[in-house]
Simulated scan of single mutants.
Amino acid sequence: MGYILLILGIALFAGGHWVKRLAPEKRAAWGDKGKGILSVAMLAGVVLMVVGYRGAGFVNVWVPPAFMTHIANLLVLIGFWFFALSNINGTMAARVRHKQLTGVKSWAVAHLLVNGDLASIILFGGMLAWAVVSVILINKAQPTWERPVQVSVAKDAMAFGVGAVLYGIVAAIHTWLGYYPFPM
């Protein structure tokens, strides 16, 4: 049952995000009420992903090498940095159009490198696929992009600091949940 909930959660989360791109007229007809419905669907998707992932039986697909943990931690830190860059206009913010989706891709690849079980492959592979398809859909719908102005390296550093703090908080939560993210 865990795998079904996991897949359903990914589908709800992705579908909720893609409605605007795949059926813009229908989405526009829903008005503000539609935003609420889609938000609830996406939130339900996240809940189902968590419940499904935690309830999925362990099926080992491959055993990741221990050194991948270092690479994964770096990729997660980069992912948080890109999330911060979506609100803080550093020079990287002017180079990368889809900062949050780039952050999700970095986070997903990191988790795929260190988790070789089937549930992890479905969850993190699904989130990676969602982010890649989302970039394609957005670029197709809006081929031009207005780059942020008044960017600076100082703002890059500020965004990195925010990302590092978020990374530390999430690492602490992982540790609290019993998933120690740092190698000995």
Rank of each mutant, 00 (worst) to 15 (best):
I4G: 02
L5W: 14
I7K: 02
A11P: 00
L12V: 00
F13A: 13
F13M: 11
F13I: 05
A14P: 00
A14Y: 03
G15I: 08
H17W: 04
H17S: 09
L22N: 12
A23Q: 12
A23N: 08
A23L: 15
P24D: 13
E25K: 11
K26E: 11
K26F: 10
A29P: 05
W30Q: 04
K33H: 08
G34A: 03
K35G: 07
K35E: 14
I37Q: 06
I37G: 00
S39I: 04
A41C: 11
A41W: 03
M42H: 04
M42W: 02
L43H: 03
L43Q: 04
G45L: 07
G45H: 03
G45M: 08
G45R: 11
V46G: 10
L48G: 05
V50A: 15
Y53G: 01
G55C: 06
F58M: 13
W62Y: 15
W62H: 13
P65W: 09
M68T: 15
A72W: 11
N73I: 05
N73F: 08
V76T: 13
L77E: 02
F83D: 10
A84L: 11
A84P: 09
I88M: 04
I88K: 01
T91R: 15
M92H: 06
M92A: 14
A93H: 06
A94N: 03
A94M: 00
R97N: 00
K99V: 02
K99N: 11
L101I: 06
L101C: 04
G103N: 07
K105D: 10
W107P: 14
L113H: 05
L113Q: 07
V114Q: 13
N115L: 07
G116T: 10
L118N: 03
L118M: 14
A119T: 01
S120C: 04
I121S: 03
F124G: 10
G125L: 02
G125S: 00
L128M: 11
L128C: 06
L128E: 09
W130Q: 14
A131V: 07
V132E: 15
V132K: 04
V133I: 15
S134A: 13
S134R: 07
